[in-house]
Design a protein around this nucleic acid. Sequence first.
DNA 1: TATTCCTGTCCTG
DNA 2: CAGGACAGGAATA
Length: 174
Amino acid sequence: MRAKDPDVETIRCVFRNSSLGTVLIAMSDSGVCALLMGDDEEILANDLRRRFRNAKLSFQKSVDPLSDAVLALIDAPTAPVTFPIDLRGTPFQERVWAALREIPGGQTATYADIARAIGAPTATRAVAGACGANPLAVAIPCHRVLRSDGTLSGYRWGVDKKRALLAREGVDTP
DNA sequence: TATTCCTGTCCTG
DNA sequence: CAGGACAGGAATA
């Protein structure tokens, strides 16, 4: 019983195989709070622990229907997000992520565009940092953000996945 | 072309 | 607590 400290929340986690490789889906009581990609489960788990230092991670084998919806989104990234999202970040990050979610599927924006959209036109570099800190791959379309010169620049989970997602949305990349 | 500054976070010493 | 590193970009020399 002392296992349930009221201060420690439990996050349910599950590994799934997606069309982009292994993904780690994490869910709180409020919704999906993390979607990490990568083929090394240990690295993903450590990444998740680093993001939620104060939470207890409960890894599960059983398939949660919520994670099915997440997988479907990876296959069809332009589809609307149909599952609840539990987003946590600094006020600045949340502004950036909100702006990202307004980029329509199949379209792209630049880091400078996002900076202008949130009212911090000179903070383009900080915007890039917020994109990299984005815990919800695909659901928050940081892959639609390109450099001003049109190049892909970088991606937290690998430029190849960024290119794959954009190709899936019908965007031609250099 | 090469510096320099701007900006928010995170990591390291 | 200070300094450096980032998925950028505009301004200056």
